[in-house]
């Protein structure tokens, strides 16, 4: 049961297509798991559809546009034949994330960042960054505040901070004001997708020294 959802501004910006790639990835991944947010997103898409329909085109298409389009269709029919490879039935990563990792959990190239915590940075455009976090059950992520916005989506296990509990599918939205210490619940190791639009600032000395190496 998902209790922590996406905000309206994130859903609308995703629908409008103006989010940085890393944020689009986490929105698409949460929506893959959450039908409530999918319904809200598709409602925002309907706003875009209405605007498109009401646009009074002051421009017209080129005279041969329809014929040119039919030609494109004829030429692309061959390409469509290659289907995407089948996906395993049970996997931790929903489709959008699976695509970025190039596989499921067993394909992640983790790097240790101390205290048993591991991370893997995903390849997105540079305006924002996305990484997978692996936090062993019972272990804390170093205490950190945020320069910008940080979204954390739980894919497996659960974590708690001073404010709440976040289980599979839940998304935590942390802003400049949020100062917290997430701790993975004992039991199943916690795997999260975390996205931020600015480098994290750690409060302890050691993590701060490590920051340039971690690229976070």
């Amino acid at each position: 049961m998902i209790r922590h959802h996406l905000t309206d501004d994130l859903l609308m910006a995703y629908s409008a297509g103006t989010l940085p790639e890393a944020f689009s990835l986490i929105v698409a991944t949460h929506v893959s798991l959450c039908d409530d947010c999918r319904a809200r997103l598709e409602a925002y898409d309907a706003v875009g559809g209405s605007l498109l329909d009401q646009l009074l085109p002051q421009v017209s298409m080129a005279p041969d546009a329809l014929a040119a389009t039919m030609q494109k269709i004829a030429m692309s029919d061959a390409e469509d034949a290659r289907a995407s490879p089948p996906r395993p039935a049970h996997r931790v990563f929903p489709e959008p994330l699976y695509g970025y990792v190039g596989g499921d959990l067993d394909h992640v190239r983790w790097r240790a960042v101390g205290g048993g915590v591991r991370q893997a940075i995903l390849n997105t455009s540079s305006e924002a960054s996305a990484r997978l976090l692996y936090i062993p059950g019972g272990v804390a992520v170093p205490d950190h505040g945020h320069h910008g916005m940080e979204l954390t989506l739980v894919l497996q296990g659960a974590f708690r901070d001073e404010h709440d509990r976040f289980g599979p599918g839940d998304i935590e939205i942390a802003t400049e004001e949020t100062q917290h210490t997430p701790v993975a619940e004992p039991g199943l190791d916690c795997i999260c997708l975390a996205v931020t639009d600015a480098p994290l600032k750690f409060s302890g000395l050691l993590p701060r020294l490590a920051q340039p190496f971690l690229r976070i």
Partner: peptide
């Protein structure tokens, strides 16, 4: 119109920002 909007929007991201568009499953 909603469905065509989503296709046009994705094409725009591809064209103007040259980025991948992660889509929900």
């Amino acid at each position: 119109s909603t469905w065509i909007f989503t296709i046009a929007r994705n094409r725009r991201i591809d064209m103007l920002r040259r980025q991948r568009r992660p889509e929900p499953e």
